[in-house]
């Protein structure tokens, strides 16, 4: 694989329950006291917030192991590249406000300055690992707070531009791959259960995104009235149940429909190895099929990490960044097929 093809540490697929859970993410929203929220702030306010955030990151040592991108450096195609890597939100990239973005070298930690809230930072971990993600997010929170004063009220907690994020300001989520539950049509029931206890279920790229490749994101909706650990425990509990159901469904499929499952998996592998033109969506779906095969032990020639890396690298902006060229859609589909083929044939 090309040397530029590094992906975030959270994609290493070596975390707990990695056969079902891709990653765990904890995001905190914070605002700086006495500065209007981003959409009401002046350009001078925006610049000052960026400067204060950059300073706080530098002073607490975070800049030694990461980089801070200025507003200019966030223009396309960099913006799309960051969205594909889950390091920035689409709203942030599209925003007209002056922004700044911190990304740690291993891409587990990122901090958006002047998104809907002044500071939105996240930590991602491989597999189902809230202790890792939350501890790191809380550590960054404490370091930042030593350098700046947060907007906070004893009654409402951390004050956010939208009351939906109030209180803990925390959105905790788990990204799970649930193909067997989809095939056995048990998914509706499982997801309804999660929604029933107030959790949200979304697609791969958050709000409004489709559930491409049978990847589902489970996250909390309520942020007031529960401690961070209570929120996390609820999501972790549901995730563990979902993992158990998915594994049982996989077992069932292997017992009752082994040939059909093998057919699906090997067709995915065959297409990925043979295709000369591959769209991004088709690639994701085929790679998802391949992932199931690897998780079930049907395919041994690639491992979970390689499959997970592929998922990110075949996206349009990442593909172009890796190849170092700006390509048309048709050119991309061709080069994507070549890249995937070479990766799978020569790994």
């Amino acid at each position: 694989m090309s040397p530029n093809a590094a992906v975030g540490k959270w994609l290493a697929a070596n975390g707990p329950e990695a056969d079902v859970v891709l990653s765990t993410r904890v995001r905190l929203a914070r605002n700086v006291a006495e500065v209007p929220f981003t959409h009401r702030a002046t350009e001078t306010d925006h610049e000052r917030t960026i400067e204060v955030a950059r300073w706080a990151l530098a002073d607490s040592g975070y800049l030694d192991s990461g980089k801070f991108l200025s507003n200019e450096e966030l223009a396309e195609p960099q913006g799309q590249y960051l969205i594909e890597r889950h390091l920035a939100s689409p709203d942030f990239v599209a925003s007209k406000a002056k922004r700044g973005l911190y990304v740690s070298n291993d891409e587990t930690t990122s901090l958006m300055v002047n998104e809907e809230d002044h500071l939105r930072f996240q930590v991602m971990a491989s597999g189902l690992d809230f202790p890792e993600a939350f501890t790191a997010a809380a550590a960054l929170d404490e370091k930042l707070e030593r350098q700046l004063q947060y907007a906070f009220s004893g009654e409402f907690g951390f004050l956010t531009a939208c009351p939906t994020n109030l209180g803990t300001g925390m959105r905790a989520s788990v990204l799970a791959h649930l193909p067997a539950l989809v095939i056995t049509r048990e998914i509706e029931k499982v997801l309804r259960g999660a929604m029933h206890i107030g959790l949200a279920v979304r697609g791969l790229y958050g709000e409004g995104s489709e559930t491409k490749g049978n990847f589902f994101q489970i996250s909390n909706q309520k942020t007031v009235g529960q401690t961070e650990w209570e929120i996390i425990e609820t999501i972790a509990d549901i995730s563990r149940q979902v993992i158990t159901y998915e594994r049982k469904a996989r077992e069932y499929l292997m017992k009752k429909l082994r040939v059909e499952v093998e057919d699906k998996v090997f067709r995915s592998l065959g297409l990925l190895k043979g295709a000369r033109v591959l769209s991004s969506d088709e690639a994701i779906n085929l790679i998802a099929g391949l992932r199931l095969g690897v998780a079930l032990g049907i395919i041994n020639e690639v491992n979970l990490e390689q499959v997970t890396r592929l998922m990110i690298l075949v996206r349009p902006a990442n593909l172009q960044a890796m190849l170092g060229e700006k390509l048309s859609a048709a050119e991309r589909d061709e080069r994507r097929a070549t890249f995937v083929r070479e990766t799978l044939v020569h790994q």
Binding site: F156, F158, V224, G225, E228
Partner: peptide
């Protein structure tokens, strides 16, 4: 939205 008003976290 939250079924609660009083913040209890960090």
């Amino acid at each position: 939205i939250h079924d609660a008003v009083q913040h209890v976290g960090r």
